[in-house]
Amino acid sequence: MVQGTEAIFLGALRAGGNFFAGYPISPSTEILVLAAEHASRNPDFKFIQSEDELAAGNAIIGASLAGAKSFTATSGPGFTLMQEAIGYGHEVEVPTVLVNMQRVGPATGMPTMPAQQDVLQTHYGTSGDYYPLVFCPNSVAECYRYAVITFNAAEESLSPAILLSDGFVGHLNEVVDLDAIEVEVVARSRPPLGTGTRFFTGLAHDEKGNPRTADAVIYKQWLSMVKARHEKVAARYRHFECQGNDSSDTLLISYGIVSRVIAPLAGQFAMFRPIRIFPMLGDELREYAQEYERVVVVEANDGQYASLVEREVKRDVVRVPLLGGRINLELARKGLSENLGKEVS
C-alpha cells in the first residue's frame, strides 16, 4: 500500500529531485516530513524548513539556479504566498516544481477539508502573462507518474510547473508497484551558478539577461519565445481520458478526486477527464463536446474550471459544484439531478 503524498515524494526522487524547501501546512505536511527524513539519511538531498512560504517559494528557485532539481509542497494559503515566486520563476525561466494539495478556502478556510478551489489561482495567481504547465492526478499511481512528469515539464519549459492535487488524493492508500511505472526522466540542461557571467533577473531583459525595462519590442519577442516554448512542451503532454457514450446526450467533465468519485456514472454519461489541466486542452474539449448536447463540469469549487471550459467550447456549460469539503457520489447525483432536470441514479 502506498499513500498519495508518499507517491508524490517518491516520484520527485525518481525525477531526480534533490532539494526541498517548505513550510508546514495540512494536507501537504506529509511531504515536508518525508523530505526531512530523507535528507537526514541522504546528505546529497538538501532540505530547508523555511520561515514561511515566501522563503520556500524563493528558495526552490535559488536551489534550481544552483543546479538542484528543487520542489516544494503546500496548500491554498501557502500557495498564495508562493505566487510571487511563481511569477519570478516564469520571468527568469527557472525550472522548479510546486505541489499544491488543495483545501477549502478562501484564507484558512476549512483546514483541512479537500477542495479544488485553487484552479484559477494556479493559472492566474501571479502578475503578468505566463503559461503554467499543471497536472492533476487522480490516483496514487498517477501521483507518482505525474510528479515525474511535472519535473520533466519544468525542465523542458524552464518554468515553475505545478502538480495540483488535494488532501483526498494525497491520503488515498492504494496497492501499486511504483517501480513498475515506466516514465522517462528529463535531465537538467542549464549549467549551475558559478560557471558563467550570466544575469538572472526578474526585470524584463534581452537574451543576455541585461535589463531592458522600456523596450516593448524586446519584451514582446521574449514573451512570444516563452509562449511558443510552453506550447511545444504542452503538446508533448496532451494527457486526458475520455469515454464516449452513444446513449447519452451529456458530457460530464471532472478531474482529480472528483473524477474518481463520479466514475460510477460512466454508464449514464460520456466522461472527459483532463490530466494536463493547464494549458487548457482546448482542441480536445471542443472535439468531444461537439458530440453532446450538454456539457457539465462537476468540480469541488464554484465553477472555476467550468468557466474556462465555457470559453473553450463557446457555449453554456452546466456547473455542478461540490462545496465545503464534501466530495461524494450522493452529492454529485443530487447536483446533477437538480441541474439536468431529471433523476440521476
Binding site: 520556500a56 535559488g62 557571467t197
Partner: peptide, 27 residues
C-alpha cells in the same frame, strides 16, 4: 548584481536571502 562578471541573480524585492541560502546549501 548585473554589473559583475560572475553569475548574478536579481531576485524579488526582499528575497535575496532565501535564494542565496538555498544556492549555498546546494553548492
Amino acid at each position: 548584481a548585473g554589473y559583475f562578471n560572475v553569475d548574478g541573480v536579481y531576485t524579488l524585492h526582499g528575497r535575496a536571502l532565501p535564494v542565496a541560502e538555498a544556492a549555498k546549501l546546494v553548492n
